[in-house]
Amino acid sequence: MSVLVLAEKDGNQLKPSTYQAVTAASAWQLPIDLLVYGDNLDAMAAEARQLAGVRRVLLAQAGHFQHPLVEDVLELVLGIANQYTHVLSAHSVFGKSVIPGIAARLDIAPITDVIEIRTPSTYVRPSYAGNILSTIENLEPVQIITVRATAFRACSRDGEAELVTIDAPAVRGTSKWIGEQLTHSERPELNSARVVIAGGRSLGEEFNNLLDPIAERLDAAIGATRACVDAGFAANELQVGQTGTIIAPELYIAVGISGAMQHLAGIKDSKIIVAINHDPDAPIFKHADYGLVADLFTVLPELNTALQQH
């Protein structure tokens, strides 16, 4: 019995969610193999070997993995799946796109968006937009899951896994990568940041002017509500909530956010929630740990100054 964890990379590094996925996989107390795929893995192989708890790093190197496609990774995993009783990936955009297909081809039901592995085949996952936590017993002979990365700590980097090269299957060709429009931000990614500060529509054109300096000081990711994104004040990928990114940082600061259901669904796992709003009756205060009723156009510059002084 052993576990296959699917790694994901960001440039020449493993994504933080890969470290968190390895921690989740360790709950099974079985040997863990980490599958790393890409077109040029020399730099990353050394990093991958250090993930604590990993027995072997499986390297699949191929030109077409420069921009991995679901169909190609699916074939790669199916080629080695018979060696594993457990398959796990982070519940990232790629993880949730590829894992259900892998499971279906093995005639196995996957469990997605797991936040806790309670027993080797019992999992807790949110449903109904985070309003319900379901405990699921998976009766399948192979356990295939995706985990919400932020629900698990990152594993440490003191491991020394064996490095194994595996063959990449030929290109499937059913889909082709055309291009990407990615925001190159110095800020951490929303789904793995320790601190997130998000703004609502009321920030208007001042969204970046008000939030950027504070985010910089806190090394925070910046988020926005759906209304703020729809109004064009913030980029699409900044949206936090049920229909955007679901976050679980140590500290979440909600600025000018009233607290719509769909937004709350995306933030409720944050450890500490701070709400700043001029309306004392805003629902967000019911879900926050600390509240500050104030005009955000004066309070944000003040916060920036206060953080500077310490």
Binding site: S127, I132, L133, S134, E137, K268, K286, H287, D289, V293
Partner: peptide, 19 residues
């Protein structure tokens, strides 16, 4: 293939401490 064993509501925060 799987069984939902139980369901619960996530713990609510007691409400914000106003500063």
């Amino acid at each position: 293939r799987f069984r939902v064993v139980s369901a619960s509501e996530p713990q609510q925060k007691p409400g914000a401490i106003q500063l």
